[in-house]
Design a binder for these strands. Structure first.
Lengths: 145, 145
DNA sequence: ATAATTGCAAATAGTTTGCACCTAC
DNA sequence: GTAGGTGCAAACTATTTGCAATTAT
């Protein structure tokens, strides 16, 4: 899906969720969603905040934290794995692998099409009921190579 | 491998690495390794610290942080993926999937034997040179179900 | 002997919370 | 009008750093 379309799609999804749940669709929520859907680099809260500030000069970092938390709760956004301390977010909630540069921490999507065999069987784990999985590739990006 | 054996194996590995690199094999390092190798629950730094304190009453949390960092650098231990803020550690550095309870955060190993098709192909990602991957299953553990 | 590690205290980074004011519905 | 959201400042949690004292080799 093209970026423009994806942004529109997520904006519509957000509007629908707000209507359904009866919660307000604020400028902050709309803008955070548009910013996050508009980029493929899985930004941290601070990076989202920086980008949102360009459109809403007074937004607080706190609000961005809260908005992203709500988005994750409603399944609109996923918080991705990162052994570093920072939370990183992805507006694409489909099951797809990520590749992380172990040197600079950059994270990019891996197209599922590039990965035959991506449909892992659900593992058997004693005492756990599993419903999903994530795959993370590790490597070095061009700049860090 | 049985737990006792695994602990001995990691202790020996640590001793070898210290000899090779010419760095001191301190009580703290030995104890942290024995504690971490002795448990399968992928503890946080604080949990390791608590356990180490029982054997070395005065250890500082700082030291545990530093020891674990050195272990990761030398490939003796891996820091595992966790979208939460805390660092979690695993003395088993072999490539094996983890299962995480999304409710309480408990993390357990998934036996590779239980998972046909675990050998994922290395993905093609533009501009990235990949050398490894991680797999994380998500679910609910018995207590949280 | 000496180079490295440790423990303490203080600093920093990331995130969360309480509360008064504001806004979408 | 009202429930819920937002911004600010302060609190908290996880982690890191500077430095003097200690320890492994």
């Amino acid at each position: 899906m093209a970026r423009r379309q994806f942004i529109a799609h997520k904006a519509a999804q957000l509007a629908a969720v707000c209507r359904e749940r009866g919660i307000p669709l604020t400028v902050q929520r709309r803008t955070v969603m548009e910013v996050l859907a508009g980029r493929a680099d899985h930004p941290s809260v601070e990076q989202v905040h920086d980008a949102v500030k360009e459109r809403i000069p007074g937004v607080s970092l706190t609000t961005v934290y809260r908005v992203l938390e709500v988005f994750v709760q409603f399944g609109l956004v996923q918080k991705i794995d990162d052994p570093g301390a920072k939370g990183r977010f992805d507006a694409d909630v489909s099951r797809h692998p990520h590749a992380r540069c172990v040197s600079c921490g950059r994270i990019v999507d891996v197209e599922a099409a590039e990965l035959p065999g991506i449909d892992l069987p659900m593992a058997q784990v004693e005492d756990f009921t599993l419903f999903d999985y994530t795959i993370n590739y590790l490597g070095h990006c061009r700049r860090c190579r």
